[in-house]
């Protein structure tokens, strides 16, 4: 197989509150022989909030990030669902609106950059599944997760709106019955658990302004996974991870029931199956202890 190479847009949490996400991304990429060129010039994507304040500024900043991936001539890989949505949404809007693209490029031109629209944008989950392939992963599994019931938590911004996702990962995922993460769990030897909340919202984006709504959503998600007899949860989104891993106290109070499960990043799950160590995957950085190892 030709060596896979991507431009890595890490997003902010990988550098701050989820160091384990960055560690496990690099560990898994190394195991799979995937080359990641980090876009060190990239700015924050605005996390779906900057655009509420200043939509045009948000577009310019995201277009700039994509322009750097284009300079490398590489597909951009994201490791955060919200980075994926904001970046893919920017690409979609600029690629379908020549006037808007010209306006954004007039600004980028001031710093010697241009958004062309030549780079695709995909989440690392889909890079692994679509480009590397589940069969290839299966062959590399050295420590199958066969003793675990694992609850996939997809995260909104990888699956909705499907109109965007069709451009980036070939339209295999239906938001009402997503399968990619289930397939990856199975490829890693685990048992994927079905539950209603797997494609629902974790509440992260409303945590400050609507704390009760956010806490109930988190509580429902963890409770759903627990009731389906999951041993742990797995998510491709570091923001979902933060919510599910660090906020279970508030979530338990909000829904009137104690809920808590270890939550792994998708990269950590793959890393375990491929034989990476707990240290390499940063499992010590979790607030809800990863107690099954």
């Amino acid at each position: 197989m030709k060596k896979l190479k991507y431009a890595l847009f890490t997003g902010c949490t990988a550098k701050e509150s989820t160091p384990e996400q960055m560690m496990s991304t690099l560990a898994v990429a190394k195991k799979l022989g995937i080359e990641l060129v980090e876009l060190t010039e990239a700015s924050c994507c605005g996390a779906s909030h900057l655009q509420d304040y200043d939509d045009f500024l948000s577009l310019v900043l995201n277009a700039r990030n994509i322009a750097y991936a284009e300079k490398h001539g590489l597909t951009m890989v994201t490791i955060c669902n919200t980075c994926q949505l904001n970046t893919a949404m920017t690409k979609h809007r600029l690629d379908h609106n020549a006037d808007l693209k010209a306006k954004v490029n007039a600004k980028l031109g001031e710093v010697g950059l241009e958004y062309k629209g030549t780079s695709q944008i995909t989440h690392f989950l889909y890079a692994i599944i679509d480009d590397f392939g589940l069969d290839a992963i299966k062959k590399m599994v050295v420590k199958p997760l066969s003793q675990f019931n694992i609850a996939p938590f997809y995260g909104c911004h990888n699956i909705r709106p499907s109109e965007l996702q069709n451009e980036t990962h070939k339209g295999h995922e239906n938001p009402y019955n997503p399968t990619s993460l289930d397939d990856l769990i199975i490829a890693c030897g685990g048992v994927s658990v079905d539950y209603v909340e797997k494609n629902k919202c974790c509440g992260f984006h409303a945590e400050l302004q609507a704390p009760r709504t956010a806490a109930v959503l988190t509580g429902n998600a963890v409770a759903g996974a627990m009731d389906a007899n999951a041993d742990w949860m797995v998510t491709p989104c570091p923001l979902c991870h933060l919510k599910l891993d660090t906020q279970t106290h508030h979530a338990s109070l909000a829904i009137g029931r104690d809920v808590s499960l270890p939550v792994l990043h998708m990269q950590q799950m793959v890393g375990l199956a491929l034989g990476c160590t707990s240290e390499e995957l940063g499992l010590k950085h979790h607030v809800t202890k990863v107690d099954f190892l």
């Binding site: 909104c156 911004h157 909705r160 709106p161 938001p175 629902k200 919202c201 984006h205």
Partner: peptide
């Protein structure tokens, strides 16, 4: 108070 789940768009 929108949670930005994108379900309404979908």
């Amino acid at each position: 108070d929108c949670v930005k789940c994108m379900e309404c768009a979908e």
